[in-house]
Design a protein around this nucleic acid. Structure first.
Lengths: 147, 147
DNA sequence: AGTGAAAAGTAATGCCA
DNA sequence: TGGCATTACTTTTCACT
């Protein structure tokens, strides 16, 4: 058995950074009971090994006028590869995420749009952008996300 | 027409923070051509008006041993309210997000689990946790997320 | 709204246990 | 790996435009 990649202190640091990605090293150091330098070294290491892939801001998109969310299940021609699905779908600015799926459907697309009219346009562009054979769209009424 | 909540400079700042949520004010100030104090004031304001809801770290969960993702579509008894759906589903630690849906299904649950065995356990707990009448699970093979 | 400068706090680095 | 001390930056605040 190899040494574990992430110990309990690392998990505490990750939890603190999930709650507030701009927490200072000194604040985290006080919480986990290490020095500032030790915490920085752990965070640097977590980035190096790829556990931490980045930091980002959380945005309320409805306040920016993109109030409607939906998921679209896509079915593709049997010859279509996962890479091709991601490439064509992610080209649309309305596409927030692309999940390729085992079985039926072939992909699940997370869309964020201004309104229902905009949703229709986005779905139509999705349909035309690849070898899409069918779609089913789920309109999101409410969202809860962890953290 | 009211004054716009977010102008072009704010959008630039948001883009910079989406790319790296720990960017310094001085770095952003240089990018957008304002003083450090002006950028800080805008970020503070974006938080105050609720456009920015927080900052967080992006994590590669597969490196932490949670390698499997899935979406489960849930159908509930007709009497079940959206609040109840979110409350019961979000109680499971495997649940990453809950989307309540217009029509059929009633909810879409984003799950993150260690392995397929763990997925089965999570789905069984979901089924028993509320007035669930049916489920359909989509296994995620690959994920692409914007930014 | 924005600027510039001072004060306080934080990050980054090197050296030693 | 972690602690400590030093230096360089960054954040924060405030008076002024």
């Amino acid at each position: 058995m190899a040494e574990e990649l992430v110990d309990a202190v690392d998990h505490s640091i990750l939890r603190l950074l999930r709650e507030d990605g701009r927490r200072t090293f000194s604040e985290m150091a006080a919480e986990v009971g290490l020095s500032v330098a030790a915490v920085k070294r752990r965070v640097d290491r977590l980035r190096d090994v790829g556990v931490i892939t980045g930091f980002t801001v959380q945005i309320d998109h409805s306040k920016l006028g993109w109030a409607v969310e939906a998921f679209t299940e896509l079915r593709y021609l049997g010859t279509t590869g996962a890479g091709e699905i991601v490439q064509t779908a992610s080209a649309l600015p309305e596409v927030q995420a692309v999940f390729t799926i085992a079985g039926d459907p072939d992909a699940l697309i997370w869309l964020r749009v201004r309104d229902v009219n905009h949703l229709q346009q986005a779905i139509e562009r999705l349909r035309r952008s690849g070898k899409v054979t069918g779609t089913k769209t789920l309109m999101v009424l409410g969202t809860w996300m962890r953290s």
